[in-house]
Nucleic acid binder design. Sequence first.
DNA 1: TGCATTTACATCGTAGAACGATATATATCA
DNA 2: TGATATATATCGTTCTACGATGTAAATGCA
Lengths: 144, 144
Amino acid sequence: MKAARRKKTKSIGEGDYRALAAFRHALRQFLVFSEEAARAVGLTPQQHQALLAIKGHVSGAQVTVGELAEHLLIRHNSAVELVNRLVAAKLVSKAGAAEDRRRVIVTLTPRAEAILRDLSAAHLDELRRSGTPFIELAQRLERD
Amino acid sequence: MKAARRKKTKSIGEGDYRALAAFRHALRQFLVFSEEAARAVGLTPQQHQALLAIKGHVSGAQVTVGELAEHLLIRHNSAVELVNRLVAAKLVSKAGAAEDRRRVIVTLTPRAEAILRDLSAAHLDELRRSGTPFIELAQRLERD
DNA sequence: TGCATTTACATCGTAGAACGATATATATCA
DNA sequence: TGATATATATCGTTCTACGATGTAAATGCA
């Protein structure tokens, strides 16, 4: 973090393009793995991300629709639709918040908890299995 | 798929969920940055990825439609459509391969080269600027 | 207190992109 | 040469995020 020899990039070479392309390829590979893992247990990738965001939230396995949108970096209305699909799939339940009745609290069902546990274990395995090149590429890109 | 005779994964704890969620959040942030950077120069994210894959290809800035599909991990027909959109946007040109007339060679236009150079510089900057937490999360996930 | 404003969620129609199924052209092989 | 494989193209469908807009509840402030 100390050797900032080049402050302004501005000279991109062949190697930079190859490194960036390889990085995106590794990224895409991870995302494809994740998509397939999710679909294999009957979830869309977005549903999986939503469950993870809910479960991984600081406040425990409960978030509002708005908080979910924030974490997933999608619009509020997209989060509403995503949650509705999750409810239809019996993966979450919705409940009005007592102290602010505009808010809707989204909670994982036991079914979702079980599915997410398996999915998360598979993802940790995958990252251990093939995460290294990914990290190395990122480090290389960050370095010079 | 082989029967799951692999040793049962270590049990997942709260920290694992949080780390995975944080990792995906960082990933998503990078992708959102990338999408916005692409759109800011008039490209869709997919078009940007295609240009990068072509430019970063070992054989120089030329690939066939099929190779592009392989690198982007999409279906051949999706690659055809993507390339058609790139042609319409004057970002690539198509040419039949001399030695195998089934193949179509896709080549970047000067316009695409220029746009990609700027985009790539911006991405390298972004990775230097905010890549660290991303890498650290990945390393942490890989470690334990 | 009353009313405007802000906040949070919901609804609806649209659009972009990837896909499966299928078609066509070219190459290769027995 | 005919059968089969390979490379690309076309078409209709589906899925999901979005913008625009609507509704309900909370908040601000005169």
